[in-house]
Design a protein around this nucleic acid. Structure first.
Lengths: 344, 344
DNA sequence: AGTGATTACGTAAGCGCTTTCGTAAGCGCT
DNA sequence: AGCGCTTACGAAAGCGCTTACGTAATCACT
């Protein structure tokens, strides 16, 4: 990292060139009141001519105000998080905020480090995206740090995770899980299998709860439905599908609890010569951008990821309210070609 | 954005608690020499107990050293850039650097603003990913700003773009274009059509040059090959495929200049009842993660996106050399199910 | 014309850290 | 004991900015 970054020009230089004091120059550029329009414009003109860019560090040190926000995701290469990030960046750019993105590389242990790093960077707000643990003690440290950050005046918003005391954007995973299951049941499927991620995560637990609700309502014992846990990735989907095919050949529909897994399921079924949806129907969850372009196109639950990112930042930017706000992201079953009535 | 962020504890507090001076506390925590190990450890212990996190702004103001880097991409929601970002974040995390990501939302006009923002934030390095314009004048302003940044001690690295004076990680688009075309020619295709993005971008121009080389080497006049320009997205791929099908029904292979377009091409062909690879072969470029899980799996040119991101940051972190360094990212044709010998 | 209120600007005090410089203590040596 | 030399630490000067406060000048009134 560079050492001598001093060659840059300072507000001082601008002030001298414009023939005003440091204070006036500062006020002119930040648009603060107390400067005549004529002087302000002259200062701005000089700054523009010189190519002056204010030092954000000095500014935030002196002013105590931060123009940057932090975003913590599991893995930025994952389309789900990439699309959330896209939404956050969009409103960030609009508001003139810089966004620092951290990802844990799917290692929950590292979430705390990332949060600490953002706190050290004195970001104005922290957005944490991605599922938390059902067992709250596993993320108690992160929660404590976030609360300390809030007490110090920082804003926090979470996406897809409950964290009392922070604004949250919440997809209704439970209702979504119920709805997509009802879609399969409505088509006539009775032998459904689930390709799931780790159930210790709230997102997955919630989706499963919805699934079980729908099954029960239809008179099916949830315990009779095979649930295969694997990684929440395409590779995990492939493995899960293999096991389902091997151990439960009677299955007529596989519900994957996210699209990434669903893509893996499709891939594995194809490799085994099982045709979708004729032999087995497949449904996913999230509606990542590529879902509609798969062959067959994927029936799934649409979550407006980018909007969720936007909403989260907008919430964080608002004046903090006494009690945490909630935004519920809509969910909607998108029926495409990967699901059809069972033929068996 | 919050105003009063003063409730946080300062190095001063740690120093008092540990019964040492500010200077000693600073040295202890930053690992600078000149402190006895006993005292240093005591200070660290106190800092840990108090939960002290240093203020990065103050630190970088005083030290003139920045522990953050900036990454500019076209669109973070795009898997190509998301995977690059993933690589950058990976080494960023390893080096204890924060990464500020900006995206232009595919609007090249905004690249300059994003760069300025990063300069204002006094990042230590800026990584610019994504194609530049063939017409250099269209990005002259951005280039000038980057050079000024370099003169002021900042590091710059570019990915997939030539910018003399900066370290670069370069996929060999030209050879890749040639190789994938040779793959199609090798299968026996003679009536090839290209689904291209805007040719004013260097990436696309380079890939096309490679395509034309291969065609010429095989005795085919490049001018006789239909090249349809559209958006460099799935939607663009769909449109391009429609036009190719309508205007050149004799086509036996469609080469899309990135995977996103290829996915769109596959989708459009499927909608028209054209089977791949039986009726028409389809090839892409990039090898985004999902390419292998498509149906049919996509033949494409693999670019190691994540590694390119890693390399770029590593280059930027090295001591600057007098002349810019180059890293060439390997490219490799990955033959999958979407290409086969023509039947017509 | 004289009063107080308002406006436009300058002076200077920090924001929380790093780092230079100074000093006192400890060391080995003659 | 006295010398220089190293080492461990503290005092204080900034880094580049914002902002409270002070002060002239200008204004609207009586």
């Amino acid at each position: 990292m560079p050492k001598e970054r001093t060659a840059t020009l300072r507000l001082q230089d601008v002030a001298e060139q414009a023939g005003v004091s440091l204070a006036t120059a500062s006020r002119s550029l930040s648009g603060a009141p107390g400067v005549s329009e004529a002087v302000a414009e002259r200062v701005r003109e000089v700054a523009r001519r010189l190519g002056y860019v204010a030092n954000v560090h000095a500014r935030s040190l002196a002013g105590g105000v931060s123009r940057s926000v932090g975003l913590v995701v599991h893995e930025i290469g994952d389309p789900y998080f990439a699309e959330i990030a896209s939404g956050v960046l969009r409103v960030g750019a609009r508001e003139g905020l810089t966004v620092q993105i951290c990802h844990t590389g799917r290692d929950p242990e590292r979430e705390l480090d990332q949060i600490r790093l953002l706190v050290a960077n004195r970001v104005g707000a922290i957005i944490v995206a991605g599922s938390g643990f059902v067992d709250a003690s596993k993320q108690a440290a992160a929660k404590a740090d976030l609360q300390a950050f809030q007490r110090a005046g920082g804003r926090v918003a979470v996406i897809g995770r409950h964290h009392l005391g922070a604004d949250a954007v919440l997809p209704d995973n439970q209702k979504g899980g119920r709805a997509i299951t009802e879609h399969l049941l409505g088509l006539g499927h009775r032998r459904i299998a689930v390709a799931s991620g780790a159930r210790e995560l709230t997102t997955i637990a919630d989706r499963m709860t919805g699934v079980e609700e729908a099954l029960t309502a239809e008179g099916i014992d949830p315990a009779s439905v095979p649930v295969v846990e694997a990684e929440f990735t395409r590779a995990g989907g492939r493995q899960a599908a293999e096991r389902i095919l091997d151990e439960h050949p009677e299955t007529t529909a596989i519900l994957a609890l996210n699209d990434d897994m669903a893509i893996g399921v499709l891939s594995a079924l194809r490799a085994r010569g099982v045709s979708v949806p004729e032999d087995v129907s497949v449904a996913g969850f999230d509606d990542v951008a590529v879902a509609q372009d798969l062959a067959p196109s994927l029936t799934t639950v649409r979550l407006p990821m980018a909007e969720m990112g936007e909403q989260a930042l907008l919430l964080a930017l608002k004046e903090p309210s006494s009690r945490p706000r909630r935004r519920h992201a809509g969910h909607e079953v998108v029926a495409r070609d990967s699901t059809a009535p069972p033929r068996r």
